[in-house]
Design a protein around this nucleic acid. Structure first.
Lengths: 210, 210
DNA sequence: AACTCAATATGACGGAGGTCATGTTTTTGG
DNA sequence: CCAAAAACATGACCTCCGTCATATTGAGTT
């Protein structure tokens, strides 16, 4: 038996959802909440396999409630429920640790399929939503190409600066003199048109070298 | 009419797929290729709405073929076809610009649904695959929580260090004396248990403050 | 009223960072 | 094989960074 907590402020939507969900004999809505705060409290006192959480609710919204619940009971699966096919929300919903994103206009079979997929470890994502957020996530760590005039040695040193090492530490790790490390850094600063090691560290991280 | 190019080296799979696809009267397999190279050549001479591309093929694999085709005809949709629910491939497939990821054991209705969703701009992703790759993409910019003992002023200065500013620049931007900026930095270093401004910059980026 | 804390300031001090000039040794490519 | 580039080294020099001690102001608390 799958125990579901339904967190949704609109009684009508809640009722409709409950009926749709309980079409499946193995799934039961064992509790309902009208806002995020109630949902958090219920999760403190009871155990649920799945929480279906509306994103817009009074008192405490669904994303914050999700974060709190997962920080206390990480094994709980949370599916975010929303009206809009809004990729901004989708990203936030995923960052908060939810296991997916249900649209309110989904039909019963779609709903059941999503719930079961989620409980089996899947992440439920509309194709349209996926098309919007994946490129964002990929571009975000898009490794802009590194200046190709950099030598292997210089790249190595850039990495170490990006890890927060001092010149002394770098010189010891590479069995060089401190002066040599400084020389390399001077050349790096020149090639990359930067001013100091801090900017090198930023460069290193932004270009995915660390 | 939707024109599909089928790139798959195994004749049997190709035949089966073709029959499943053409269940839908609006979709037609107008060409077939037995490896990536053939697929690329066919795309040069003809126009297709969709390419279904096996990932493992002789001569040229599906990922490389995808990259070449998309560099020449970016409007083409490519769906990658594979046997395994392998997230390593999935990431590569998405990076290559494909619009999703079909499993060979999908049934006919699933297949048709995926094709149509893809042509409508969707990104087709198994829930299990999504569950594997999304955390990877998100962890990269995982906003570990920032030390809460930091004051607003200190956070501000941390951000500016994370942008590569010198003490002098920061003091001018905030209308402070250089000494005050240094004082703040000393306190920041103490609170975060760091050693120098470079490590502060790294902290700022890793915690999503910049 | 007494207290705490954030924010500001000053000046002195030592050390790390970065520049420059110069030179040697290896690697590598034509 | 020779020339160019990369890697390594030294020492002098100056600047910027960060520490420390000390102090003032204003906001909020008890």
């Amino acid at each position: 038996m799958i125990r579901v907590l339904l967190a949704e402020d609109q009684a009508m939507v809640r009722q409709g959802l409950k009926m749709m969900i309980e079409t499946d004999k193995e799934i039961q809505v064992t509790a309902e909440a009208v806002n995020g705060k109630e949902a958090v409290e219920l999760c403190g006192n009871h155990t649920f396999d799945l929480v279906i959480m509306d994103i817009r609710m009074p008192v405490m919204d669904g994303l914050e409630a999700t974060r709190i619940i997962l920080s206390r009971r990480p094994e709980t699966k949370v599916l975010i429920l929303t009206t809009f096919n809004d990729d901004e929300y989708a990203l936030e919903a995923l960052k908060s640790g939810s296991r997916g994103y249900l649209l309110k206009d989904a039909d019963t079979s779609e709903l059941i399929r999503s719930i079961r997929s989620c409980l089996e470890g899947g992440l439920v994502l509309e194709d349209q939503v996926a098309a919007n957020i994946l490129p964002k996530l990929m571009n975000h760590n898009a490794p802009e190409e590194v200046d190709e005039s950099l030598t292997p040695r210089e790249l190595d040193i850039i990495c170490r600066i990006g890890e927060g090492r001092s010149n002394r530490e770098i010189s010891e790790e590479l069995a060089l003199s401190v002066g040599t490390v400084k020389n390399h850094i001077s050349i790096i600063l020149d090639k990359l048109e930067l001013r100091d090691r801090t900017q090198i560290a930023i460069y290193a991280i932004r270009h995915g070298l660390v």
